[in-house]
Amino acid sequence: MPTPHLATLAIRPLTLQDLSGCADLSEDRGWPREEHKWGLLLSAGTGYGIDAPDGQGLAASCVVTSYGDSTSSPALTAIGMVLVAERYARQGLGRRLMTQLCAELAPTPLTLHATPNGRPLYEELGFKATGRAEMLVGHFTPSAPTPADPITGTVRPATAADLQAILRLDRDVFGEDRTHMITRLPSFADRLLVAEDEDGTLTGYAAAWPNMNTHVVGPLIAQDTATAQALVAALADTTDRPLRTDIDIRHAGLIDWLKAHGLQSVAFNAVMTHGIPALPGDWTRRFAPLTVAAG
């Protein structure tokens, strides 16, 4: 049970002015600071935090990102960046933060990616594991042929004229509208590519955004594995940094291909949902999220 003074600490909204404090909290728990990602999450989503009673930054944090046509009644909300400072760990702060959020967000369906350490708490709160993602990191090493199966069409840099088609494809695949997130990609990502067939119809898109010393590949949306391979290979060709991505384990063909091209498995996260039996949309074309923190 939390000590009385921790149990009475206020939960408050976080803003971009809290970005440095959020990064400090990440670092405190052994995570990368990830200021660039925090900036996106605090802009496109809503952060919640508990100020440390010792006056030294944040004691706990999380971010929720809602999707759907109506901001007043979202169709799906993702929860991420649930962190508690080491000196306040195992004293009930994370449970209190999550319990209050789940109550306030009800009856909206929820999703999150859970580490093995966090999963027991989420299960106690009613979340169920409905999928699994494998995190892979490493320098991409091209080899012939790349991709394994050539696609019919081209991969090219996205332009402003592609935005509406990207939004339509994303909604079809993700299952809910996330315009407020996807329209931030051109400024957030270092590279944004699209795949199109011979008729000019978009068959996929992917972004690579900077995160510390890596480029994260996500979102990765593609009509098939070959298209996903082509998008990743094209993104890798534009950077000297290691790639990092979180692939739905049902896409075993892409995972094996990435491993054959230099990436290594570093972790697994459980994809969990609350209030729905599975995520909406078409998982067969959804290879990787923008970031696990935003669903």
Rank of each mutant, 00 (worst) to 15 (best):
P147F: 02
P147C: 02
P147V: 01
A148L: 13
D149W: 08
P150S: 08
I151G: 01
I151F: 05
I151H: 01
T152R: 12
T152H: 13
T152A: 15
G153M: 06
T154A: 13
V155T: 10
R156S: 10
P157I: 03
P157F: 05
T159K: 01
A161V: 11
A161N: 11
L163W: 03
L163N: 08
L163C: 10
L163F: 02
Q164H: 12
Q164S: 15
I166S: 04
L167N: 11
L167Y: 00
L169G: 04
D170W: 02
R171N: 11
D172T: 13
V173C: 10
F174L: 02
G175Y: 00
G175N: 07
G175I: 06
G175V: 11
E176L: 08
D177P: 01
R178Y: 01
H180F: 04
H180L: 06
M181L: 15
M181E: 12
T183I: 13
T183S: 12
T183D: 01
R184H: 11
R184D: 06
L185V: 14
P186E: 09
S187W: 08
S187I: 10
S187M: 07
F188S: 06
F188P: 05
F188N: 05
L192E: 00
L192S: 02
A195L: 03
A195D: 02
A195R: 00
A195S: 14
E196C: 12
D197L: 11
D197K: 11
E198C: 10
E198N: 14
D199C: 09
D199R: 14
G200L: 05
G200V: 06
G200P: 09
G200C: 07
L202S: 01
L202H: 03
L202D: 01
L202Y: 05
T203M: 10
T203W: 00
G204T: 09
G204M: 07
G204C: 11
Y205H: 14
Y205E: 05
Y205G: 10
A206P: 08
A206D: 02
A207K: 08
A208Q: 02
W209I: 00
W209E: 01
N213S: 13
T214W: 13
H215A: 05
V216Y: 06
V217I: 15
V217K: 08
V217P: 08
V217Y: 05
V217L: 03
V217M: 05
L220W: 00
L220M: 09
L220P: 08
L220C: 07
I221G: 03
Q223L: 11
Q223V: 15
T225E: 13
T227A: 02
T227H: 03
T227F: 00
A230H: 04
A230Y: 05
V232D: 04
A236V: 08
A236H: 07
A236I: 07
D237R: 12
D237N: 14
T238C: 10
T238I: 04
T238V: 08
T239K: 06
T239R: 04
D240N: 13
R241G: 02
P242Q: 10
P242C: 09
L243A: 10
L243H: 07
L243D: 04
R244N: 09
R244K: 15
T245V: 12
D246M: 07
D246S: 04
I247V: 14
I247P: 03
A252D: 14
G253H: 12
G253F: 00
L254T: 06
I255D: 03
I255E: 02
